[in-house]
Design a binder for these strands. Sequence first.
DNA 1: TAGTACAGTTTTGTCATACCAAATCGGAAC
DNA 2: GTTCCGATTTGGTATGACAAAACTGTACTA
Lengths: 238, 238
Amino acid sequence: MTEERIGDARTRAADNVVSMYERQIIDGTLAVGKPLPPEREIMQAFGVSRTVVREAVQTLSAKGLVEARPRFRPVVRTPGYDAAIEAVGSVVNRLLTVPGGVRNLFELRIMMEAALVRDAALHADKNHVARMKQALADNEAAISDSQRFFETDIAFHRVLYEVPDNPVLPPIHQAYTDWLSSHWTRMPPDPERNHVNYRAHSRIFETILFRDPDAAELALRDHLDDAWNQVRLTFAEP
Amino acid sequence: MTEERIGDARTRAADNVVSMYERQIIDGTLAVGKPLPPEREIMQAFGVSRTVVREAVQTLSAKGLVEARPRFRPVVRTPGYDAAIEAVGSVVNRLLTVPGGVRNLFELRIMMEAALVRDAALHADKNHVARMKQALADNEAAISDSQRFFETDIAFHRVLYEVPDNPVLPPIHQAYTDWLSSHWTRMPPDPERNHVNYRAHSRIFETILFRDPDAAELALRDHLDDAWNQVRLTFAEP
DNA sequence: TAGTACAGTTTTGTCATACCAAATCGGAAC
DNA sequence: GTTCCGATTTGGTATGACAAAACTGTACTA
Protein backbone atom coordinates (compact mmCIF):
# COMPACT_ATOMS: atom_id res chain seq x y z
CA MET A 1 0.00 0.00 0.00
CA THR A 2 1.43 3.35 -0.95
CA GLU A 3 -1.37 5.72 -0.22
CA GLU A 4 0.79 8.29 1.53
CA ARG A 5 3.22 10.15 -0.63
CA ILE A 6 6.71 10.08 0.69
CA GLY A 7 8.85 13.04 1.49
CA ASP A 8 7.86 16.60 0.79
CA ALA A 9 5.04 16.08 -1.63
CA ARG A 10 2.03 18.15 -0.72
CA THR A 11 -1.40 16.76 -1.21
CA ARG A 12 -3.46 17.23 -4.31
CA ALA A 13 -6.98 18.54 -4.18
CA ALA A 14 -8.15 15.47 -6.06
CA ASP A 15 -6.93 13.14 -3.34
CA ASN A 16 -9.91 13.85 -1.13
CA VAL A 17 -12.34 13.02 -3.87
CA VAL A 18 -10.43 9.89 -4.79
CA SER A 19 -10.18 8.49 -1.29
CA MET A 20 -13.83 9.24 -0.63
CA TYR A 21 -15.07 7.27 -3.60
CA GLU A 22 -12.44 4.63 -3.03
CA ARG A 23 -13.95 4.01 0.37
CA GLN A 24 -17.50 4.06 -0.93
CA ILE A 25 -16.62 1.53 -3.58
CA ILE A 26 -14.80 -0.80 -1.24
CA ASP A 27 -17.44 -0.81 1.46
CA GLY A 28 -20.16 -1.27 -1.11
CA THR A 29 -21.95 2.05 -0.70
CA LEU A 30 -21.42 2.35 -4.42
CA ALA A 31 -22.49 -1.00 -5.78
CA VAL A 32 -20.84 -2.68 -8.73
CA GLY A 33 -22.17 -1.42 -12.03
CA LYS A 34 -23.47 1.80 -10.52
CA PRO A 35 -22.30 4.97 -12.21
CA LEU A 36 -20.53 7.75 -10.36
CA PRO A 37 -22.51 10.99 -10.01
CA PRO A 38 -22.21 13.53 -12.82
CA GLU A 39 -19.05 15.59 -12.66
CA ARG A 40 -20.91 18.78 -11.97
CA GLU A 41 -22.59 17.22 -9.00
CA ILE A 42 -19.28 16.02 -7.57
CA MET A 43 -17.92 19.54 -8.01
CA GLN A 44 -20.57 20.95 -5.75
CA ALA A 45 -20.40 18.12 -3.26
CA PHE A 46 -16.70 18.68 -2.68
CA GLY A 47 -16.48 22.34 -3.53
CA VAL A 48 -13.81 21.86 -6.14
CA SER A 49 -13.52 22.68 -9.80
CA ARG A 50 -14.32 20.29 -12.56
CA THR A 51 -10.64 20.03 -13.37
CA VAL A 52 -10.09 18.39 -10.03
CA VAL A 53 -13.11 16.16 -10.37
CA ARG A 54 -11.93 14.88 -13.70
CA GLU A 55 -8.48 14.26 -12.33
CA ALA A 56 -9.97 12.25 -9.50
CA VAL A 57 -12.10 10.19 -11.83
CA GLN A 58 -9.12 9.43 -13.99
CA THR A 59 -7.18 8.28 -10.98
CA LEU A 60 -9.99 5.96 -9.92
CA SER A 61 -10.05 4.61 -13.43
CA ALA A 62 -6.30 4.05 -13.49
CA LYS A 63 -6.53 2.24 -10.19
CA GLY A 64 -9.02 -0.10 -11.77
CA LEU A 65 -11.86 0.75 -9.43
CA VAL A 66 -14.11 2.25 -12.06
CA GLU A 67 -14.37 1.77 -15.77
CA ALA A 68 -14.36 5.10 -17.56
CA ARG A 69 -15.22 4.78 -21.22
CA PRO A 70 -15.04 8.13 -22.99
CA ARG A 71 -18.36 9.96 -23.17
CA PHE A 72 -19.92 7.55 -20.67
CA ARG A 73 -20.43 7.80 -17.00
CA PRO A 74 -17.71 5.97 -15.08
CA VAL A 75 -19.20 2.82 -13.57
CA VAL A 76 -17.95 0.86 -10.61
CA ARG A 77 -16.00 -2.04 -11.91
CA THR A 78 -16.59 -5.60 -10.80
CA PRO A 79 -13.69 -6.68 -8.63
CA GLY A 80 -11.69 -9.24 -10.53
CA TYR A 81 -8.21 -10.57 -10.69
CA ASP A 82 -7.93 -9.60 -14.32
CA ALA A 83 -8.35 -5.95 -13.40
CA ALA A 84 -5.22 -6.31 -11.31
CA ILE A 85 -3.34 -7.83 -14.20
CA GLU A 86 -4.48 -5.07 -16.50
CA ALA A 87 -3.25 -2.45 -14.07
CA VAL A 88 0.32 -3.70 -14.25
CA GLY A 89 0.25 -4.01 -18.02
CA SER A 90 2.35 -1.07 -19.08
CA VAL A 91 4.88 -1.38 -16.32
CA VAL A 92 5.52 -4.99 -17.19
CA ASN A 93 5.78 -4.14 -20.84
CA ARG A 94 8.55 -1.77 -19.96
CA LEU A 95 10.23 -4.33 -17.76
CA LEU A 96 10.33 -6.69 -20.68
CA THR A 97 12.57 -4.24 -22.48
CA VAL A 98 15.25 -4.06 -19.80
CA PRO A 99 18.12 -6.55 -20.03
CA GLY A 100 17.06 -9.90 -18.67
CA GLY A 101 13.48 -8.77 -18.28
CA VAL A 102 11.94 -11.46 -20.45
CA ARG A 103 14.18 -14.05 -18.93
CA ASN A 104 13.16 -13.14 -15.40
CA LEU A 105 9.51 -13.29 -16.20
CA PHE A 106 9.83 -16.56 -18.02
CA GLU A 107 11.82 -17.96 -15.12
CA LEU A 108 8.99 -17.04 -12.80
CA ARG A 109 6.56 -18.76 -15.08
CA ILE A 110 8.64 -21.91 -15.12
CA MET A 111 8.74 -21.95 -11.35
CA MET A 112 5.03 -21.46 -11.14
CA GLU A 113 4.07 -24.06 -13.67
CA ALA A 114 6.46 -26.51 -12.10
CA ALA A 115 4.49 -26.08 -8.91
CA LEU A 116 1.27 -26.40 -10.86
CA VAL A 117 2.13 -29.70 -12.54
CA ARG A 118 3.18 -31.10 -9.19
CA ASP A 119 -0.16 -30.05 -7.85
CA ALA A 120 -1.93 -31.50 -10.85
CA ALA A 121 -0.11 -34.80 -10.48
CA LEU A 122 -1.31 -35.00 -6.92
CA HIS A 123 -4.80 -33.53 -7.07
CA ALA A 124 -6.17 -33.43 -10.60
CA ASP A 125 -9.57 -35.09 -10.69
CA LYS A 126 -11.31 -36.89 -13.57
CA ASN A 127 -12.74 -33.65 -14.80
CA HIS A 128 -9.38 -31.94 -15.08
CA VAL A 129 -7.81 -34.97 -16.67
CA ALA A 130 -10.55 -35.05 -19.25
CA ARG A 131 -10.02 -31.43 -20.11
CA MET A 132 -6.30 -31.92 -20.40
CA LYS A 133 -6.86 -34.89 -22.65
CA GLN A 134 -9.11 -32.83 -24.86
CA ALA A 135 -6.65 -29.96 -24.97
CA LEU A 136 -3.93 -32.38 -25.86
CA ALA A 137 -5.96 -33.85 -28.70
CA ASP A 138 -6.66 -30.37 -30.05
CA ASN A 139 -2.99 -29.67 -29.79
CA GLU A 140 -2.06 -32.73 -31.79
CA ALA A 141 -4.64 -31.97 -34.45
CA ALA A 142 -3.10 -28.53 -34.95
CA ILE A 143 0.51 -29.56 -35.45
CA SER A 144 0.48 -28.60 -39.09
CA ASP A 145 -1.23 -25.28 -38.47
CA SER A 146 1.18 -23.16 -36.48
CA GLN A 147 -1.36 -20.48 -35.67
CA ARG A 148 -3.82 -22.94 -34.22
CA PHE A 149 -1.01 -24.86 -32.58
CA PHE A 150 -0.05 -21.72 -30.74
CA GLU A 151 -3.60 -21.35 -29.45
CA THR A 152 -4.01 -24.96 -28.42
CA ASP A 153 -0.62 -24.82 -26.77
CA ILE A 154 -1.85 -22.00 -24.57
CA ALA A 155 -5.10 -23.83 -23.90
CA PHE A 156 -3.22 -26.89 -22.72
CA HIS A 157 -1.15 -24.92 -20.26
CA ARG A 158 -4.24 -23.07 -19.11
CA VAL A 159 -5.76 -26.26 -17.79
CA LEU A 160 -2.86 -26.50 -15.38
CA TYR A 161 -3.82 -23.14 -13.92
CA GLU A 162 -7.39 -24.30 -13.44
CA VAL A 163 -6.66 -27.39 -11.40
CA PRO A 164 -6.09 -25.72 -8.02
CA ASP A 165 -9.47 -23.96 -8.35
CA ASN A 166 -8.01 -20.63 -7.29
CA PRO A 167 -9.49 -17.73 -9.27
CA VAL A 168 -6.22 -15.86 -9.08
CA LEU A 169 -4.43 -18.32 -11.29
CA PRO A 170 -6.21 -18.15 -14.65
CA PRO A 171 -5.70 -14.40 -14.97
CA ILE A 172 -2.04 -14.95 -14.21
CA HIS A 173 -1.86 -17.41 -17.05
CA GLN A 174 -3.60 -14.91 -19.25
CA ALA A 175 -1.05 -12.29 -18.27
CA TYR A 176 1.89 -14.55 -19.01
CA THR A 177 0.66 -15.37 -22.46
CA ASP A 178 -0.20 -11.75 -23.21
CA TRP A 179 3.19 -10.52 -22.17
CA LEU A 180 5.25 -13.22 -23.76
CA SER A 181 3.24 -13.81 -26.91
CA SER A 182 4.96 -11.03 -28.80
CA HIS A 183 8.19 -12.98 -28.53
CA TRP A 184 6.58 -16.27 -29.38
CA THR A 185 4.87 -15.07 -32.50
CA ARG A 186 8.16 -13.66 -33.71
CA MET A 187 9.37 -17.17 -34.43
CA PRO A 188 8.78 -18.47 -37.93
CA PRO A 189 6.19 -21.27 -38.19
CA ASP A 190 7.78 -24.69 -37.92
CA PRO A 191 5.66 -27.88 -37.88
CA GLU A 192 8.70 -29.85 -36.78
CA ARG A 193 9.02 -27.78 -33.65
CA ASN A 194 5.28 -28.04 -33.10
CA HIS A 195 5.66 -31.77 -33.11
CA VAL A 196 8.40 -31.64 -30.51
CA ASN A 197 6.27 -29.42 -28.33
CA TYR A 198 3.28 -31.66 -28.69
CA ARG A 199 5.36 -34.63 -27.57
CA ALA A 200 6.45 -32.60 -24.57
CA HIS A 201 2.86 -31.81 -23.67
CA SER A 202 2.00 -35.42 -24.11
CA ARG A 203 4.75 -36.47 -21.73
CA ILE A 204 3.59 -33.98 -19.12
CA PHE A 205 0.11 -35.36 -19.40
CA GLU A 206 1.31 -38.91 -18.90
CA THR A 207 3.27 -38.07 -15.78
CA ILE A 208 0.17 -36.45 -14.34
CA LEU A 209 -1.84 -39.54 -15.16
CA PHE A 210 0.79 -41.62 -13.38
CA ARG A 211 0.48 -39.34 -10.36
CA ASP A 212 4.20 -38.75 -10.38
CA PRO A 213 4.95 -35.18 -9.30
CA ASP A 214 8.70 -35.46 -9.68
CA ALA A 215 8.46 -36.76 -13.22
CA ALA A 216 5.82 -34.14 -13.98
CA GLU A 217 8.01 -31.32 -12.78
CA LEU A 218 10.93 -32.69 -14.74
CA ALA A 219 8.91 -33.05 -17.91
CA LEU A 220 7.57 -29.53 -17.57
CA ARG A 221 10.98 -28.02 -16.90
CA ASP A 222 12.39 -29.81 -19.92
CA HIS A 223 9.56 -28.49 -22.00
CA LEU A 224 9.84 -24.88 -20.88
CA ASP A 225 13.63 -24.83 -20.91
CA ASP A 226 13.45 -26.05 -24.44
CA ALA A 227 10.86 -23.44 -25.31
CA TRP A 228 13.14 -20.82 -23.83
CA ASN A 229 16.02 -21.93 -25.97
CA GLN A 230 13.79 -21.67 -28.99
CA VAL A 231 12.52 -18.24 -28.22
CA ARG A 232 15.67 -16.64 -26.82
CA LEU A 233 17.05 -16.41 -30.33
CA THR A 234 14.36 -13.91 -31.26
CA PHE A 235 16.00 -11.16 -29.25
CA ALA A 236 19.49 -9.94 -28.75
CA GLU A 237 20.21 -10.83 -25.15
CA PRO A 238 23.22 -13.03 -24.38
CA MET B 1 -1.73 -5.66 -23.35
CA THR B 2 -5.00 -3.80 -23.33
CA GLU B 3 -4.17 -0.64 -25.15
CA GLU B 4 -7.19 -0.73 -27.43
CA ARG B 5 -10.50 -0.06 -25.80
CA ILE B 6 -13.15 -2.54 -26.68
CA GLY B 7 -16.44 -1.79 -28.31
CA ASP B 8 -17.60 1.64 -29.27
CA ALA B 9 -15.25 3.77 -27.20
CA ARG B 10 -13.90 6.69 -29.19
CA THR B 11 -10.39 7.79 -28.68
CA ARG B 12 -9.30 10.43 -26.23
CA ALA B 13 -7.14 13.33 -27.31
CA ALA B 14 -4.70 12.50 -24.55
CA ASP B 15 -4.03 9.04 -25.95
CA ASN B 16 -1.72 10.38 -28.64
CA VAL B 17 0.37 12.23 -26.13
CA VAL B 18 0.47 9.24 -23.82
CA SER B 19 1.51 6.73 -26.43
CA MET B 20 4.13 9.07 -27.81
CA TYR B 21 5.89 9.52 -24.51
CA GLU B 22 5.30 5.89 -23.66
CA ARG B 23 7.31 4.96 -26.72
CA GLN B 24 10.01 7.52 -26.01
CA ILE B 25 10.40 6.22 -22.50
CA ILE B 26 10.51 2.58 -23.51
CA ASP B 27 13.00 3.02 -26.32
CA GLY B 28 15.16 5.24 -24.13
CA THR B 29 14.80 8.51 -26.00
CA LEU B 30 13.73 9.86 -22.66
CA ALA B 31 16.32 8.55 -20.25
CA VAL B 32 15.55 7.53 -16.72
CA GLY B 33 15.52 10.50 -14.36
CA LYS B 34 14.95 12.99 -17.15
CA PRO B 35 11.99 15.31 -16.68
CA LEU B 36 9.21 15.61 -19.22
CA PRO B 37 9.04 18.93 -21.08
CA PRO B 38 6.99 21.74 -19.53
CA GLU B 39 3.28 21.38 -20.10
CA ARG B 40 3.10 24.43 -22.32
CA GLU B 41 5.75 23.00 -24.58
CA ILE B 42 3.87 19.74 -24.89
CA MET B 43 0.71 21.69 -25.70
CA GLN B 44 2.37 23.35 -28.67
CA ALA B 45 4.12 20.19 -29.80
CA PHE B 46 0.84 18.31 -30.05
CA GLY B 47 -1.51 21.18 -30.66
CA VAL B 48 -3.73 20.34 -27.73
CA SER B 49 -4.90 22.22 -24.69
CA ARG B 50 -3.23 22.04 -21.34
CA THR B 51 -6.20 20.12 -20.02
CA VAL B 52 -5.29 17.29 -22.33
CA VAL B 53 -1.61 17.50 -21.55
CA ARG B 54 -2.25 17.24 -17.85
CA GLU B 55 -4.54 14.29 -18.39
CA ALA B 56 -1.84 12.57 -20.38
CA VAL B 57 0.78 13.18 -17.75
CA GLN B 58 -1.47 11.80 -15.08
CA THR B 59 -2.04 8.68 -17.13
CA LEU B 60 1.69 8.18 -17.56
CA SER B 61 2.07 8.58 -13.85
CA ALA B 62 -0.69 6.10 -13.09
CA LYS B 63 0.91 3.62 -15.43
CA GLY B 64 4.07 3.91 -13.41
CA LEU B 65 6.20 5.23 -16.24
CA VAL B 66 6.87 8.61 -14.70
CA GLU B 67 6.90 9.84 -11.16
CA ALA B 68 4.80 12.97 -10.81
CA ARG B 69 5.23 14.64 -7.46
CA PRO B 70 2.96 17.63 -7.13
CA ARG B 71 4.56 20.91 -8.15
CA PHE B 72 7.54 19.12 -9.67
CA ARG B 73 8.28 18.17 -13.19
CA PRO B 74 7.34 14.55 -13.86
CA VAL B 75 10.51 12.51 -14.20
CA VAL B 76 10.96 9.21 -15.98
CA ARG B 77 10.87 6.50 -13.42
CA THR B 78 13.48 3.79 -13.15
CA PRO B 79 11.98 0.52 -14.37
CA GLY B 80 11.57 -1.81 -11.45
CA TYR B 81 9.48 -4.72 -10.39
CA ASP B 82 8.26 -2.83 -7.36
CA ALA B 83 6.64 -0.24 -9.61
CA ALA B 84 4.56 -3.07 -11.02
CA ILE B 85 3.54 -4.19 -7.58
CA GLU B 86 2.62 -0.67 -6.63
CA ALA B 87 0.41 -0.35 -9.66
CA VAL B 88 -1.78 -3.25 -8.60
CA GLY B 89 -2.01 -2.04 -5.02
CA SER B 90 -5.48 -0.65 -4.90
CA VAL B 91 -7.06 -3.35 -7.01
CA VAL B 92 -5.65 -6.03 -4.78
CA ASN B 93 -6.79 -4.20 -1.71
CA ARG B 94 -10.27 -4.32 -3.07
CA LEU B 95 -9.96 -7.98 -3.94
CA LEU B 96 -9.07 -8.69 -0.36
CA THR B 97 -12.49 -7.47 0.67
CA VAL B 98 -14.47 -9.86 -1.53
CA PRO B 99 -15.41 -13.24 -0.04
CA GLY B 100 -12.49 -15.62 -0.20
CA GLY B 101 -10.15 -12.92 -1.41
CA VAL B 102 -7.64 -13.24 1.39
CA ARG B 103 -7.83 -17.00 1.19
CA ASN B 104 -7.10 -17.03 -2.52
CA LEU B 105 -4.11 -14.78 -2.17
CA PHE B 106 -2.74 -16.73 0.75
CA GLU B 107 -3.23 -19.94 -1.17
CA LEU B 108 -1.18 -18.50 -3.99
CA ARG B 109 1.52 -17.56 -1.54
CA ILE B 110 1.61 -21.06 -0.12
CA MET B 111 1.97 -22.52 -3.57
CA MET B 112 4.75 -20.13 -4.39
CA GLU B 113 6.71 -20.58 -1.22
CA ALA B 114 6.35 -24.33 -1.49
CA ALA B 115 8.08 -24.05 -4.83
CA LEU B 116 10.68 -21.75 -3.29
CA VAL B 117 11.64 -24.06 -0.46
CA ARG B 118 11.97 -26.91 -2.91
CA ASP B 119 14.26 -24.73 -4.94
CA ALA B 120 16.18 -23.71 -1.84
CA ALA B 121 16.60 -27.31 -0.75
CA LEU B 122 18.12 -28.08 -4.13
CA HIS B 123 20.11 -24.96 -4.93
CA ALA B 124 20.76 -22.83 -1.86
CA ASP B 125 24.47 -22.09 -1.57
CA LYS B 126 26.55 -21.39 1.53
CA ASN B 127 25.73 -17.73 1.33
CA HIS B 128 21.97 -18.27 1.35
CA VAL B 129 22.24 -20.81 4.11
CA ALA B 130 24.23 -18.39 6.22
CA ARG B 131 21.63 -15.70 5.73
CA MET B 132 18.84 -18.07 6.62
CA LYS B 133 20.71 -19.12 9.71
CA GLN B 134 21.12 -15.51 10.75
CA ALA B 135 17.46 -14.75 10.08
CA LEU B 136 16.51 -17.78 12.12
CA ALA B 137 18.67 -16.67 15.03
CA ASP B 138 17.11 -13.21 14.95
CA ASN B 139 13.76 -14.87 14.89
CA GLU B 140 14.50 -16.92 17.95
CA ALA B 141 15.83 -13.95 19.83
CA ALA B 142 12.58 -12.10 19.23
CA ILE B 143 10.17 -14.72 20.49
CA SER B 144 9.21 -12.68 23.52
CA ASP B 145 8.79 -9.47 21.50
CA SER B 146 5.86 -9.99 19.17
CA GLN B 147 6.50 -6.86 17.17
CA ARG B 148 10.07 -7.83 16.43
CA PHE B 149 9.06 -11.43 15.95
CA PHE B 150 6.72 -10.33 13.22
CA GLU B 151 9.56 -8.51 11.47
CA THR B 152 12.07 -11.31 11.78
CA ASP B 153 9.42 -13.74 10.61
CA ILE B 154 9.08 -11.75 7.41
CA ALA B 155 12.84 -11.50 7.08
CA PHE B 156 13.20 -15.25 7.31
CA HIS B 157 10.68 -15.85 4.57
CA ARG B 158 12.28 -13.16 2.47
CA VAL B 159 15.48 -15.14 2.22
CA LEU B 160 13.55 -17.85 0.42
CA TYR B 161 12.59 -15.32 -2.25
CA GLU B 162 16.23 -14.35 -2.69
CA VAL B 163 17.62 -17.80 -3.37
CA PRO B 164 16.60 -18.11 -7.04
CA ASP B 165 18.33 -14.77 -7.77
CA ASN B 166 15.39 -13.53 -9.78
CA PRO B 167 14.73 -9.82 -9.19
CA VAL B 168 11.00 -10.36 -9.67
CA LEU B 169 10.68 -12.39 -6.52
CA PRO B 170 11.64 -10.02 -3.69
CA PRO B 171 9.06 -7.42 -4.71
CA ILE B 172 6.48 -10.18 -4.77
CA HIS B 173 7.38 -11.07 -1.22
CA GLN B 174 7.12 -7.42 -0.30
CA ALA B 175 3.69 -7.29 -1.86
CA TYR B 176 2.47 -10.36 -0.01
CA THR B 177 3.53 -9.01 3.33
CA ASP B 178 2.09 -5.58 2.61
CA TRP B 179 -1.24 -6.97 1.59
CA LEU B 180 -1.59 -9.55 4.28
CA SER B 181 0.02 -7.72 7.18
CA SER B 182 -3.19 -5.94 8.12
CA HIS B 183 -4.68 -9.32 8.96
CA TRP B 184 -1.60 -10.53 10.73
CA THR B 185 -1.26 -7.54 13.00
CA ARG B 186 -4.87 -7.91 13.99
CA MET B 187 -3.98 -10.95 16.08
CA PRO B 188 -3.18 -10.31 19.73
CA PRO B 189 0.49 -10.81 20.67
CA ASP B 190 1.17 -14.35 21.85
CA PRO B 191 4.71 -15.52 22.71
CA GLU B 192 3.48 -19.10 22.78
CA ARG B 193 2.43 -18.88 19.17
CA ASN B 194 5.69 -17.15 18.32
CA HIS B 195 7.49 -20.13 19.73
CA VAL B 196 5.49 -22.54 17.60
CA ASN B 197 6.23 -20.47 14.52
CA TYR B 198 9.90 -20.30 15.33
CA ARG B 199 10.02 -24.06 15.61
CA ALA B 200 8.33 -24.30 12.24
CA HIS B 201 10.92 -22.00 10.70
CA SER B 202 13.62 -24.02 12.30
CA ARG B 203 12.24 -27.22 10.82
CA ILE B 204 12.09 -25.68 7.37
CA PHE B 205 15.69 -24.61 7.71
CA GLU B 206 16.78 -28.11 8.68
CA THR B 207 15.07 -29.73 5.74
CA ILE B 208 16.84 -27.29 3.45
CA LEU B 209 20.15 -28.14 5.08
CA PHE B 210 19.40 -31.82 4.50
CA ARG B 211 18.72 -31.06 0.84
CA ASP B 212 15.33 -32.72 1.08
CA PRO B 213 12.83 -30.89 -1.13
CA ASP B 214 9.88 -33.10 -0.23
CA ALA B 215 10.40 -32.61 3.49
CA ALA B 216 10.97 -28.92 2.93
CA GLU B 217 7.72 -28.51 1.07
CA LEU B 218 5.89 -30.48 3.71
CA ALA B 219 7.35 -28.42 6.53
CA LEU B 220 6.50 -25.20 4.79
CA ARG B 221 2.93 -26.26 4.02
CA ASP B 222 2.44 -27.28 7.62
CA HIS B 223 3.75 -23.94 8.73
CA LEU B 224 1.63 -21.83 6.43
CA ASP B 225 -1.50 -23.93 6.85
CA ASP B 226 -1.08 -23.45 10.56
CA ALA B 227 -0.56 -19.74 10.10
CA TRP B 228 -3.71 -19.62 8.05
CA ASN B 229 -5.69 -21.31 10.78
CA GLN B 230 -4.39 -18.75 13.22
CA VAL B 231 -5.20 -15.77 11.09
CA ARG B 232 -8.51 -16.88 9.61
CA LEU B 233 -10.18 -16.20 12.91
CA THR B 234 -9.52 -12.50 12.53
CA PHE B 235 -12.18 -12.13 9.89
CA ALA B 236 -15.66 -13.38 9.40
CA GLU B 237 -15.34 -15.74 6.47
CA PRO B 238 -16.42 -19.36 6.92
C1' DT C 1 36.94 31.55 -6.41
C1' DA C 2 33.28 29.23 -4.08
C1' DG C 3 29.24 29.61 -1.76
C1' DT C 4 24.96 31.98 -0.53
C1' DA C 5 21.07 35.00 -0.51
C1' DC C 6 17.76 37.26 -3.16
C1' DA C 7 14.75 38.84 -6.78
C1' DG C 8 12.74 37.97 -11.08
C1' DT C 9 10.99 34.41 -14.10
C1' DT C 10 8.88 29.83 -15.11
C1' DT C 11 5.91 26.42 -14.22
C1' DT C 12 2.46 23.87 -11.91
C1' DG C 13 -2.12 23.45 -9.39
C1' DT C 14 -6.51 25.06 -9.46
C1' DC C 15 -10.45 27.74 -10.80
C1' DA C 16 -14.05 29.70 -13.90
C1' DT C 17 -16.22 29.72 -18.21
C1' DA C 18 -17.53 28.33 -22.67
C1' DC C 19 -18.75 25.28 -26.56
C1' DC C 20 -19.54 21.04 -29.12
C1' DA C 21 -20.92 16.54 -29.74
C1' DA C 22 -22.55 12.51 -27.85
C1' DA C 23 -25.50 10.25 -24.49
C1' DT C 24 -29.69 10.32 -22.03
C1' DC C 25 -34.29 11.33 -21.11
C1' DG C 26 -39.13 12.36 -21.84
C1' DG C 27 -42.91 12.43 -24.47
C1' DA C 28 -45.30 11.96 -28.96
C1' DA C 29 -46.65 8.94 -32.52
C1' DC C 30 -47.65 4.39 -33.91
C1' DG D 1 -45.76 -1.52 -25.41
C1' DT D 2 -42.57 -0.07 -28.79
C1' DT D 3 -40.36 3.18 -31.73
C1' DC D 4 -38.89 7.56 -32.91
C1' DC D 5 -37.58 12.29 -32.28
C1' DG D 6 -36.40 16.49 -30.06
C1' DA D 7 -34.87 18.77 -25.73
C1' DT D 8 -31.77 18.41 -22.05
C1' DT D 9 -27.93 16.70 -19.67
C1' DT D 10 -23.29 15.46 -19.52
C1' DG D 11 -18.59 14.47 -20.82
C1' DG D 12 -14.42 16.11 -23.74
C1' DT D 13 -11.76 19.92 -24.89
C1' DA D 14 -10.24 24.78 -25.26
C1' DT D 15 -9.09 29.24 -23.22
C1' DG D 16 -7.74 32.43 -19.91
C1' DA D 17 -6.50 33.65 -15.37
C1' DC D 18 -4.02 33.71 -10.95
C1' DA D 19 -1.55 32.26 -6.65
C1' DA D 20 2.04 29.61 -4.89
C1' DA D 21 5.84 26.99 -5.42
C1' DA D 22 10.00 25.83 -8.00
C1' DC D 23 13.68 27.42 -10.81
C1' DT D 24 17.38 30.66 -12.59
C1' DG D 25 20.68 33.90 -12.82
C1' DT D 26 22.85 37.58 -10.53
C1' DA D 27 24.88 40.08 -7.04
C1' DC D 28 26.92 39.82 -2.81
C1' DT D 29 29.86 37.78 0.80
C1' DA D 30 33.59 35.16 2.66
